[in-house]
Amino acid sequence: MSRTYRIHAKQILPVTIGQAWDYFSRAENLPFITPASLALRVTSAPQEGPVYAGQLIEYTIRPLLGIPLYWMTEITHVEHQRFFADEQRFGPYSFWHHQHHFREVSDGVEMTDMVHYRIPLGWLGDLANSLFVARQLKELFSYRSGIIPSVLKELH
């Protein structure tokens, strides 16, 4: 059995809780905060209104050698302007659980991402994680940390 891995990322956003929630709780914004090299596309029909428990979101992503992978996540928990969680239903991981937390602080909003994931294929998945998956996920959150402030400036 493969291991469960964890990623924890935190950053301060110079916006209101409402602005942060409105931006990050909409799947159509994901491509704007994802490195172009991953070629993430949201393929499900756009959802009207705020994120809700039970919402299914479909994507294609190209994490390795440009090969497209299908990914479907379900929003499983929502507490308006506090947190939401998504879990993979179909896709590249044997387990994926991603929590998005938002908390007002003196200089804006503290946004925290907590991801727990497993790679399929036992020890081969663990090897893939050590060779490229963990690095790619860390780079994704590092990219987001760098790009999000400029994306959010456009909200003002």
Rank of each mutant, 00 (worst) to 15 (best):
M1W: 08
M1R: 11
S2P: 05
S2Q: 00
R3E: 09
Y5C: 01
R6A: 07
A9G: 11
A9C: 13
I12F: 07
L13G: 01
I17D: 01
G18P: 07
Q19P: 08
A20D: 03
W21P: 06
D22G: 09
D22E: 13
F24T: 08
S25G: 09
R26Y: 10
A27D: 02
A27R: 00
A27T: 02
E28C: 08
E28R: 12
I33H: 01
T34D: 01
P35M: 11
P35Q: 10
P35N: 11
L38C: 07
A39Q: 14
A45D: 12
P46K: 13
G49I: 11
P50R: 14
P50G: 15
Y52D: 05
G54S: 04
G54V: 04
G54N: 03
L56M: 12
E58S: 13
T60H: 14
P63R: 05
L64P: 02
L65C: 14
I67E: 08
I67A: 10
L69M: 15
W71R: 01
M72A: 07
I75K: 01
I75Q: 00
I75S: 01
T76I: 12
H77P: 00
V78C: 08
H80Q: 15
H80F: 14
F84S: 02
F84H: 02
E87Q: 15
E87G: 05
Q88R: 05
F90G: 00
F90L: 07
Y93F: 13
S94A: 00
H97Q: 09
H97C: 06
H98Q: 03
H101P: 02
R103I: 04
R103T: 11
E104H: 02
E104C: 02
S106Y: 06
T112V: 10
D113H: 02
D113I: 01
V115R: 00
H116T: 03
H116R: 06
I119N: 03
I119L: 12
L121V: 04
G122Q: 05
G122A: 06
G122T: 06
W123Y: 09
G125S: 11
G125A: 11
D126H: 04
L127T: 10
L131A: 09
R135S: 15
Q136A: 15
S142T: 14
Y143P: 01
R144A: 03
S145R: 14
S145K: 14
G146K: 13
S150R: 15
V151D: 02
L155K: 15
H156E: 15
